[in-house]
Amino acid sequence: MSWLEWLVAVLVVAGSLFVLLGSVALVKLPDFYTRLHGPTKATTLGLGAIVIASMVYFNFIKEELSLQQLLIALFLFITAPITAHMLVKAALHLKLKTAEHTSGKQNADL
């Protein structure tokens, strides 16, 4: 294996571990507001790493020019915060319960 292939391997492994971490956070954390932290960030970062890996693989190992993945990454990095924002807005609107020891509930009008 060349060093480029090792680079792809490292990025792919790190990316899928971050994706898994996002899902673990989704299952493990106590309330909706904390659960939101996992998918919006860890998953986005994981997908970013996988996108970079596939760009390295196609452009340098297979040596065919392919930049479409860049669009996927760009699109996800723009949309992930917006999705999170809409979800929190909806949750605040429905007055979803927070974990008991959450501080500053009066700020959110809960």
């Binding site: 971050f18 971490l21 673990v24 956070a25 493990k28 954390l29 106590p30 309330d31 507001y33 904390t34 932290h37 996992g38 960030k41 860890a42 986005t44 970062l45 927070t98 974990a99 020891h101 959450t102 501080s103 500053g104 509930k105 700020n107 959110a108 809960l110």
Partner: peptide, 26 residues
């Protein structure tokens, strides 16, 4: 910052839930 701070969140998520101090701030 996204990369660095994600590593901190790994620790928070994998640690026990009781140690988290969630909060709303303005």
């Amino acid at each position: 910052d996204i990369v660095v701070a994600n590593l901190q969140v790994v620790k928070l998520v994998l640690g026990p839930n009781k140690r988290l101090r969630p909060a709303f701030i303005k």
